[in-house]
Amino acid sequence: MGVTLSKNAQLIKFFAQLGPGIPRTRLVKMAYMADVISRRYLGRPISDLEYRKDKFGPNAPEIGNVISELEAMGLVWTKNSPASTQEGRDASKMLFDSGRRVVFDFTLGENEILAYVAENYRAMELTEFVRDVVKQTRPFKAQRRFHEPLPMDLEDNEGRNLVGFDLEAIARAERQAEAGDFRTARDFFDALRTRLTARYTESH
């Protein structure tokens, strides 16, 4: 499929693909964590969803529209079913992937973050995820009033400053290594010494 989706739609489609059906509450919280972590390490969110404080954690009201857009394109489908899983009442709103492929244009750094969120939070018990992870983030704790926007910029570059390294650059270098664009340390330093010595010899 050659359609270019918005980053918001790509984010939802990505989480839908984790399958085998993702409840709405978990979807919103995972999107939120992806944006929080992206702000921490890349200094910007992946999506431009606006998160507001809700009793059950951050909520992004426009996600409903994004899902409708994806549904209309045949990329996802939704199902209302009785609450019967550990997801509790939220299991009544489930999102499923249609299996149709799209082109994602996430950066290497965004990919790393999405992989981290998927790996760590997809299977975490929902109550624990919301209580111990999502509600402990600085924007959620800083906003005292329900239904008001969360001050997401509180997270900007917090991780980047702690780590000191640019995640995009690290991911790029790792990609180079995977692609064979590398030298072993011994080969590199031997060649470097030869170059430095040759430079000295030429100048004298």
Binding site: R183, T184, R193
Partner: peptide
């Protein structure tokens, strides 16, 4: 373990040595 230095890391090390150390002996 194999010690792998991707292309960008090689450049970062070489630039660091050339910019922060003066003289071949010191750079080596």
């Amino acid at each position: 373990y194999e010690r792998v230095l991707p292309h960008d890391t090689q450049n970062l090390i070489e630039e660091f040595l050339l910019e922060r150390f003066i003289g071949t002996a010191t750079q080596l």
